[in-house]
């Protein structure tokens, strides 16, 4: 599974739509659309500054999701996911978010909602699958806890740190274990930059997602397209 993360509504609505549709048109398997939140604690400088800029310009959840819907109508095969922080989904309403967007989303990725807190949002009506995280420091019981996930994939954070960091975590068998236990593809995120990184991730556990390197190029459509094309 090959995927890209882009910041919703950034740098403006038109440019975001172009980037969103470009990823889908290239035939990649999934896209992660970020709904900007003012406190991006899991993000490094590149994504955090894009998010801050988007927040300053005003975040319109409905507009971002309308653009995702339009893209899905054109490219029904791509799996769309939303990546946003817990306060955005809770504020919007877990149930309302599911009712409004459940039909176009394959999952939500919430970096400040660890596996043990999933129930908190599910109880409040979140019915879209929550994509679970596995990390280099996950213990056996942490991985065991995601065994029955309904999500289309598991997200492996390969580094210790925020998006865009290059502090590699311990190399161990955590992602393979997650793949074995869940039977789902494990997508490596955080710290994938080059074609080689991506190929390695695909070979190891079946997928990758790239964030920082594409967000860097979200303002320059030509270089955005050129960058993603190498992963075709």
């Amino acid at each position: 599974m090959r995927g890209f993360y882009i910041v919703g509504g950034y740098p403006d609505r038109e440019q975001f739509k172009k980037c969103l549709n470009a990823v889908a048109a290239e035939g990649f398997e999934f896209i992660e659309v970020g709904i900007p939140f003012s406190e991006p604690v899991a993000d490094g400088p590149v994504i955090a500054s894009a998010i801050h800029e988007a927040v300053m310009n005003g975040v319109d959840i409905e507009a971002i999701m309308a653009d995702v819907r339009e893209m899905k109508q054109k490219y029904p095969a791509i799996k769309a996911t939303v990546m946003t922080y817990a306060n955005i989904i809770h504020g919007y309403g877990e149930k309302r978010f599911s009712d409004d967007f459940g039909d176009i989303l394959s999952g939500v990725i919430i970096p400040d909602l660890p596996t043990r807190m999933h129930y908190w949002m599910i109880e409040k009506g979140l019915s879209i699958p929550i994509i679970p995280f596995v990390t280099p420091v996950s213990r056996d019981e942490d991985i065991e806890a995601v065994k029955d996930t309904k999500a289309p994939f598991v997200y492996y954070i390969s580094i210790m740190g925020v998006t865009g960091s290059d502090k590699k975590g311990a190399v161990n068998n955590r992602s393979e274990t997650a793949k074995k236990l869940t039977g789902k593809p494990v997508v490596t995120g955080f710290g994938i930059r080059t074609k080689e990184d991506a190929d390695r991730a695909i070979a190891a556990t079946g997928g990758f997602v790239i964030g920082t390197e594409v967000v860097k190029r979200q303002k320059d459509f030509d270089s955005f397209c050129k960058y993603i094309a190498q992963f075709r």
């Binding site: 817990a86 400040d112 660890p114 679970p132 996950s138 942490d142």
Partner: peptide, 11 residues
């Protein structure tokens, strides 16, 4: 309350 943090911090 709760623990609304990245999975990496749970251990």
């Amino acid at each position: 309350g709760g623990q609304f943090v990245p999975e990496t911090l749970i251990p």
